[in-house]
Amino acid sequence: MNFSLFLLAVFDGIAYAALVFMVALGLTLIFGVLRILNVAHGSLYAIGAYVTASVGAAIFAAGFAPFLAFPLMLIAAALIGVVLGGPIEYLLLRRIYHRPEVLQLLVTFAVFMILEDVQRQIWGTQPYFEATALQLLGNVQVLGVYYTVYQLIFLPLVALTVLIGLRLFLRRALAGKLIMAVTEDREAAQAIGINADRVFFLTFVVGAALAALGGALASPTTSVLPGIGADMIVLSFAVVATAGLGQIEGAAVAALLIGLGRSFAVYLMPELQVLVPYLIMLSVLLIRPEGLFGRPGARKI
């Protein structure tokens, strides 16, 4: 492997990592605050992609300006966060916070199963493809290889912006501080008058919107079709576990690690490509069960 191939592999890894990070971010945020591993996250990702692709196709066919593809993604994500994420938290999860975590996980698993069929009822089985956003930004040539600006530059920039934005929000904004407080110690936070229910609701809506945004951002690069949610959830699950549950910056590092591992596998040993994310996850968990950046849980005495 020469140096230029090495660089190509790095570029591919970063582009891929950016997308995976966006999805894993919502998952880890929800876990950090609600302590729920949300399997339905994969469905929200898929629905985000479906809404963006189908609405995009409709409005561009009607002659609207192509640049609207970008605001459309944000609108779709926010809408899904509120319209779907809200009721899931309010009607289902709220009833089971005091329940064992297996049950919590199974509730999101059930929601996932239901949403899979809902998607098929709404969007059918034929793949959707809507790449206006990607075409708008064009290509860039690096070392004799064409990359799309969208994947090589835009997605990593968005990922970085979201990462920094979320960090600032959690540290500086009032709502963010409340979220941090509830994450640290729920009882203490409630004791000083923080409405934990509202914080949970807000977090879940934001997390769901991030999943949908991940789907929206992915939609120009891929075919949107049944089953994309199930694949994405395991992958982002591996990222989150590798990083340490609830670790936001950690998720960025783990996504990079997995993205690079995957792209180097394609260059060196294509057969190992599928194996890489899980191998990374396993080796990290065996050495540090709480993940790369997780804090070890105190043992109950």
Binding site: L5, L8, D12, G13, Y16, L19, G144, G227
Partner: peptide
Amino acid sequence: GEFFPAFGAPDFSTEISRLQA
């Protein structure tokens, strides 16, 4: 080159870079 990406793979960017090279 022989590439067998997983069934249902959402992204072939890496394979395409490799093929361009």
